[in-house]
């Protein structure tokens, strides 16, 4: 009798979520795609933190990476192209109780959504932003993206991209009030997981650029990095991303970088000889716009009307 009763109570209110509780639809990305790895890391994080699925929100725009919300068994918003940030900021403005992730791509964030990107970083609302950067428009079959390297051939530029690529890191680090900027890679899950975890734990907009392999269109871009960890520079610091020694030793090059130094972070972001991996910059004290937008939460209908009435009465003649 007692057991029976407990059973249906548990059914009504799940106590412990397993990985399966966060797994939504079967992921339709190509086999070997780096997005699988990011999806798995986010699901693991959700399980480890026991985020209630009904209190977790994934917002995305358009693109391969933006299919992310479908594969999570949480709430999600698959928005318009480039509009992941305004939707996420709108939700966060009135919902401090949700755990929010924004998943966007190099096209969605850095091209059509660039305006929103800049202001969302400046607003510094509590969002975990994952920019899955594969240097190409994959969903629409290989067009040049803002982060495509110079001379990269694509359907829009058959003779190669004529312009130097935009670096999401130098841009983000140049925006006033940026509070968390990191870079990681999809092919090293321990580092990926630790970075997303640190980003999630940061209060404010945490911007993580994930270098992501597209096995179909840009397999040559990141494959050399995957096979030669010497092309990456692991940023280490006690306030940075923490790795197990067994994983850290895979990286032959590492440098100590204090994430509170903005100028050093910007210099690292500008380096072209090597891909720095880790936490570039963190500022726990940056101003948060959601603190202002959430100001009057919990006010009753009558209270609001009364406040409006009072405001109007101040102009009475």
């Amino acid at each position: 009798m007692v057991e029976e009763l407990k059973e249906w109570e548990i059914e009504a209110e799940p106590q412990v979520c397993t990985l399966q509780d966060y797994q939504g639809a079967q992921a339709r990305w190509c086999p070997g795609c780096g997005d699988h790895s990011v999806l798995n890391s986010v699901q693991r994080l959700a399980r480890d933190k026991q985020l209630p699925p009904e209190k977790t929100m994934i917002v995305s725009g358009i693109g391969c990476s933006s299919r992310f919300p479908h594969y999570m068994a949480t709430y999600g918003f698959h928005g318009l192209h480039g509009r992941a940030f305004p939707v996420a900021c709108g939700i966060r403005s009135r919902r401090p109780d949700l755990h929010m992730f924004v998943v966007t791509g190099d096209g969605d964030c850095c091209a059509i959504g660039a305006g929103h990107w800049i202001h969302a970083i400046r607003y510094n609302m509590d969002l975990t932003v994952l920019l899955l950067d594969n240097n190409i428009y994959g969903l629409t079959k290989k067009q040049t993206s803002p982060t495509s390297r110079i001379a990269e051939r694509s359907n829009t530029h058959p003779h190669g991209s004529p312009l130097p690529p935009l670096s999401p890191l130098t841009v983000t680090l140049g925006i006033a009030n940026a509070s968390f900027v990191a870079q990681t890679v999809d092919w090293n899950p321990p580092h990926l997981y630790s970075t997303i975890r640190a980003a999630f734990e940061h209060k404010g907009t945490s911007f993580v650029r994930v270098l992501q392999r597209c096995p179909h269109f840009t397999s040559h871009v990141f494959a050399p990095l995957k096979d030669d960890f010497g092309q990456m520079l692991l940023l280490t610091h006690e306030a940075g991303i923490q790795l197990e020694p067994s994983v850290a030793k895979l990286f032959p090059n590492f440098a100590e970088h204090d994430p509170s130094h903005l100028e050093e972070a910007q210099a690292l972001a500008r380096r072209e000889d090597v891909y720095p991996i880790g936490l570039f910059y963190r500022d726990e004290h940056a101003a948060r716009y959601d603190h202002i937008t959430q100001h009057s939460m919990g006010m009753s209908q009558a209270g609001k009307l009364q406040a409006v009435q009072q405001a109007i009465e101040r102009f009475a003649v």
Binding site: P31, H36, D186, P189, E244
Partner: peptide, 12 residues
């Protein structure tokens, strides 16, 4: 296992 990226290649 800790380095696996869950890409479904080997399970396929």
């Amino acid at each position: 296992s800790s380095l696996c990226t869950s890409c479904n290649d080997c399970t396929k």
